[in-house]
Each structure stands twice: as structure tokens, then as C-alpha cells.
Design a binder for these strands. Structure first.
Lengths: 352, 352
DNA sequence: TTTGATTTCGGGTACGTACCCGTAAATATA
DNA sequence: TATATTTACGGGTACGTACCCGAAATCAAA
């Protein structure tokens, strides 16, 4: 059994155009040194044959390496969420390494915007051909990507978006809709239909992301005209003691809260609080497939987790850069991740 | 920027062993014509250098093609579920085609086991190097894969499993757990906690698959000691009229059914029935991301759909064969798909 | 028209592996 | 020992593309 020979390569194009392979190659990579006339002739034949370069041969013959930079939060004791995107990034890396792509990862501290700026500066110095980043700090990210744009370095956002910057693409959740789903799940065990709480545990409680999620959350109740009071609880300090203190105060003020929706992965700290205070009557919904969260899911202190395939985000983010820079193929500007619902029952089979 | 030269290829092996590249190649493919002594020497060097063949160069140089067969149900008017796996299969196909893999697909009729046997026979005649199949008919599938095993042709099951056959791998749902999740979702709108129905619409109502799902379903209530009566409704004829007739009878006998769990993708026909009879008070849960099902999900006649990533099943199934036959890499024997929960709110972002 | 500069192009080798073909060495046979 | 066979191995080309280098063709200036 032999390969079918319906494949037309540069050789056939060269033959038909009465030129050498080298000239065809020049046109394909639009390098200089080809007259307009022959360029047109060759381009016509390329179109006619619908020429698809053999990427195997191409990468094999090429000696160039393409270096990409990744800028994401460091995994801390507080949350190991970013392990998952990192895993996806590594997977993509090992897949495309053989095609001459080299990935360098830079980490910043989620509690310190200055570290973001440091690492961003390092990337700008590093002559990278593309950047993948988590724009956790909005303003800092804006500054950085503007510098990238000036250098004509394409960049990809994952996990959260920064609107109106000219990014290559965004890969992450549809935040509004995600909050909407969170609201639906919050009603699962609602009885008296009294009060639900939106808890925001983060230094940046007013970021675009959280506002989007909360808006989606509120819209669900508005759309259904459900007479439910929504209590907003902001917890700026992310350590366990602060969380306990703030929650105690909030639950004291609002005794009849029946459900709590945590807008990020730190839902486990709320679960810990509920466990300590024996408040399994309160329904708890949060984000992300973390070990701690899953543990509380299994203890039935957390009812639902919403996940957005963080590993896939990392994988696809890197692949998007690979596609544009190596394959020269177009990528979609926005790629929304699925809004996955994880419960105690299906968690064992979840693919992060 | 140049590629790092830490890579050792056949050339380096040949140099170190004082032989030619051709001899190294003979050892690598354990072809004949090499003395034991030099074979050992070369093998030692291969191990020492941890030689990884450059798959790009390998496939480029090789003229061999590897042909694979796919055996799945034809898309019928009754259900277009198999469109999704087919899509995944096509995607895998176009990805690996350039590596010299050729895929031929054979379709059978879900209502006629004889067509399965016909197509299976055709595959056995076709000298394929590997087979991907949906074992919809258990006994027929057993016969077929035994013939494959005799011919040393590896085979992969998708969507449902056939226990105790020596398959290369199974890619599909954990059926028991899937039923378990279905049970949980069935309680979402339960009020009086009376009766729930398990509806099985299929020619093969006693197949291994459905039994597994139902067992999972029942286990959920048993595990929680919920005093709920489970009504089993079997509908052997899959046309709309039969479904209407059987459901009418069943709902007449059991007036207080509050939730219906359909064990496969034909849940839309139940939804149609409920819509016609204005029974939106009955909670409905079923399977699969079909256009019709999504329509009823949006009309809120279906509450939840459980999905098992059919497209990915097709993709991964073919890739598993590719991995073993082309790359010679091992694959996991069982790959359970996630048990995805699709609602009206998150359906727009679901990845089938 | 000649010279020189510039543009336009082709030959040829390399990437790492597969595999054909021919031949030297080893072994068997006369 | 000479010859026939077999075994063991090397040379070399091909896969489809990238890209260097040099040369022919074209153009500009004198």
C-alpha cells in the first residue's frame, strides 16, 4: 500500500510555473527577489492547486526557533488554581517543541502588582515572538500589552479578558453567563426564598471580571422576577482569619441567608467556615476544581462548583500563538470556555 | 536563533557504533541482516542516548499507509446523535492523514443487527490495521471483535463498552455513575417526593448499557434512603406514535409521577409528549446534545441533559489507534468521559 | 554602447529517517 | 583451495521544504 499521489507540492508548482523551487519558496514566504509577473503566476497556481504546505517537511527543514513567553500567577499556598493552566501550557509546549517552539514562563504574585510589572518588563526585554498572559491586574496589563502591540508582538488573554485591547484572542469564560448559571444553582436548595449572598474574596473586588459575574448573577433573579434579596459581601483580605471575621459579621447581620455564591476559587475558605459553624443548611456554590474545593464538595458543604476548563485554557492559549506564528493560520478572536457544573456525583470524571 | 543541538539522531548512533545509518535503521525496525553483536552494541547506544525518533522525518520518509476502519450507526431521522462522534472522527482523520493514515467508515442501521454483521464482514475482508466501533449490538459485536483478535487487529470501543473482550481501549461514559447523576438531577424539582419514572426507548431495552444506567439511577435513591418509587417504562418501538401511546398509558396508571429520566438521547420524544399534554409540571432529564433536545431545553420542557462528549469520543478513539499503530505509544485501557450537565443556561457554551 | 549596479532566478545541499541496491566479509560446498 | 551461498553491512537517494550562494538577466548611468 502506497500513499496516494494526489498531493501537489512546491515541486509541481515550480514545474507548472516554469521556475525553480527556490522561486516558489520565495513567493510562499513572500521574500523579496521575485518579479511581480512571476509572483502572480505562481500565486495563481498555488490557489489553483489549493496548495497546503507539508508542515512536517517544513519544520524539518527550518532551523528557526520561535520563542514564546507566558505570564501567569505563581501557585501560592492560598490557591493552586494556576496549576491547571500551567499543565495545559506544558502539554502544548511538549507537543510543539518538536516544531521548533520554545516556551518561557514568567510568574507573578497575585497579591502584588509590582511583581507583574517586573516580569512584564523582563518579557519585553526578551525578544519573544508572542505572549500568553493572565491579565489579573487590569491596568498593569493594559500598559504591558500596549508595549507588546508597539513591538508587533501578538498576545493572548486567558482566564479573564481586558476589553478593547487589540489582542490576538481571548480564551476563557463568558463571565456574565457564568454568574447566571451560578444564580440558578444557588436556587437549588432555596426554601423560603429569602436571601442569597454574593461573596467576593479578593484584593481586586471591583475588577471587570467580578462585576461581570455579579451582573450575570443578579440578572438571573431579575429575569425571573424572583423576590430575592442579594447581599454583597466583599472580603479584601484573603487569609483564613479575615474570611472568618467578615463572614461572621455578615451572617450575624443577615441571619436568613440561605445560599452563598462565591465568585472565585476561594470558596473552600467559606466552606471551612460553614463546617466550623455547622451551617450545612446554607447552600454553597463556587468556582474551580481545586483539591480543597473537591474535598468540601464530597463532604457536601459545597453544592456545586462551576469550572471553565483551566487546563484547556492554557493549552489552547499557547496553541493559538503557535497557529498564528508557525502555521500562519487564523484564530478566532474569542473562544468562550464551557460553563461546567461539577457536583459530588460527577466530579470524579471531570476533565479540568 | 538556532535550534539547540542536544538532539541525537540515527546519525550520532551510527557514528558511535562505527556502523552506517542503514544498519542502525535495521536495528530500530528490527529487520534482519544485523549480527547479534552489532545489534547489541547499537541497542545499548540507543538506550544510552534515550533515542527518540523524529516522527516528522520518519513519516516524511516513509511511503507506507496505515488503513483504519470505523464502524458506527448511520445517522437516521430518528436521531442524529452519531453526527457528533463522526465529526470527531473526521477531525482526527484530517489531522493524521498527512502522517499516512487512511480512514474508511462503515455504517450500520441501529434498528437492524443484520446490517451490523454485513459491515463487520466487509471490514474483516478489508485488511485494515485497526478498528474503531460502537458495539451497539452486544452479541454481534462480540463475534466481530473475536474475529479481529484472531487477525491481530486491535479494536477500540466508543460510547458503550463490552466487558471482558480484549479491546485496545474503551472510550465512553461510566454508565453507572451517569445514571447516578441523572437521579440527583431528577430530584431538582421534586416536591411531594412521590414517584419518578425511568424511561427506556430502544429496541434493546435490556442491554448492558441501559441496565448499568438504571442501576446507577436506583443506587442514588438507595444510598440516600429516599422513599421514592421508581417506575420503569420500556418503549420498544421508537417512533413517535408508540412513544405517545406508551407514555399515555403509563401516566394514566401512575398519575403522581413528578420526574422522568430518559436513559438515552430520545428524550425529545418524551418532551414532545409533555408539551402536547401541557405537563410542564413533570421534570424531565435525558441524554445528549441534539438539536431537538436543546430546543426543548430552551422551552424548559427538558430540565437537564447529560452529555458524554460524543465528538471527543470519536476523536480520541481514532487517535488511540493512531497512537498504538503509528507512534507505538501505549494507551490507557479505559478512558471515561466526563459526565456533563447541560442546562438552558449553559448550553450555548457546551462543547460536544 | 559599455560598465556597473540591481533585480531576478536556479542549482544544490540540508533537515532526520526509510529503504533500495550493491558489495565485502563470512560461511558453506565442491 | 577455489567457488558458490549466505550474511552483514555501507552508499546513496528520496520524502517536501528552507535557504545559501552564485549567476544570468535586466536596468541605470556613463
Amino acid at each position: 500500500m502506497e500513499k496516494e499521489n494526489t498531493y501537489y507540492g512546491v515541486k509541481e508548482i515550480a514545474r507548472r510555473a516554469n521556475v525553480s523551487i527556490a522561486t516558489v519558496d520565495r513567493v510562499l514566504h513572500n521574500r523579496s527577489g521575485v518579479s511581480e509577473k512571476t509572483k502572480k503566476k505562481i500565486n495563481d497556481i498555488i490557489k489553483e492547486l489549493d496548495y497546503q504546505p507539508n508542515i512536517l517537511a517544513s519544520r524539518l527543514a527550518s532551523k528557526k526557533i520561535i520563542s514564546l513567553a507566558v505570564l501567569i500567577p505563581r501557585v501560592s499556598e492560598e490557591t493552586d488554581f494556576w496549576e491547571a493552566p500551567m499543565k495545559g501550557i506544558s502539554r502544548a509546549d511538549s507537543e510543539i517543541k518538536k516544531y521548533g517552539v520554545q516556551v518561557t514562563t514568567f510568574y507573578f504574585d497575585l497579591n502584588d502588582p509590582a511583581t507583574f510589572n517586573e516580569q512584564a518588563a523582563a518579557i519585553l526585554d526578551g525578544h519573544f515572538k508572542g505572549v500568553l498572559l493572565a491579565p489579573s491586574f487590569i491596568e498593569e496589563s493594559r500598559m504591558f500589552v500596549r508595549a507588546c502591540r508597539e513591538k508587533k508582538v501578538p498576545f493572548v488573554f486567558i482566564d479573564s479578558d481586558v476589553p478593547d485591547e487589540d489582542n490576538l484572542c481571548y480564551i476563557g469564560p463568558h463571565l456574565f453567563q457564568s454568574g447566571y448559571v451560578g444564580a440558578k444553582l444557588s436556587t437549588y436548595r432555596l426554601k423560603e426564598k429569602h436571601k442569597v449572598a454574593v461573596v467576593n474574596i479578593s484584593k481586586e473586588t471591583d475588577s471587570y471580571n467580578y462585576l461581570q459575574i455579579e451582573e450575570g448573577f443578579r440578572s438571573y433573579f431579575k429575569d425571573r422576577s424572583l423576590p430575592i434579596e442579594i447581599i454583597r459581601i466583599d472580603i479584601k483580605d484573603t487569609d483564613s482569619l479575615s474570611v472568618t471575621r467578615d463572614l461572621t459579621r455578615a451572617l450575624h447581620t443577615h441571619e436568613d441567608i440561605e445560599a452563598i455564591f462565591v465568585t472565585n476559587s476561594r470558596v473552600f475558605s467559606v466552606a471551612a467556615f460553614l463546617e466550623k459553624n455547622k451551617r450545612s443548611d446554607i447552600s454553597l456554590i463556587g468556582y474551580d476544581y481545586l483539591k480543597e474545593n473537591i474535598a468540601y464538595l464530597n463532604k457536601e458543604l459545597i453544592d456545586f462548583l462551576i469550572c471553565h476548563k483551566p487546563e484547556e485554557q492554557g493549552y489552547r492559549g499557547l496553541m493559538a500563538l503557535y497557529q498564528t506564528l508557525v502555521l500562519g493560520a487564523p484564530v478566532e478572536k474569542t473562544h468562550f470556555m464551557p460553563i461546567d457544573i461539577v457536583t459530588k456525583e460527577n466530579q470524579a470524571f471531570y476533565q479540568n
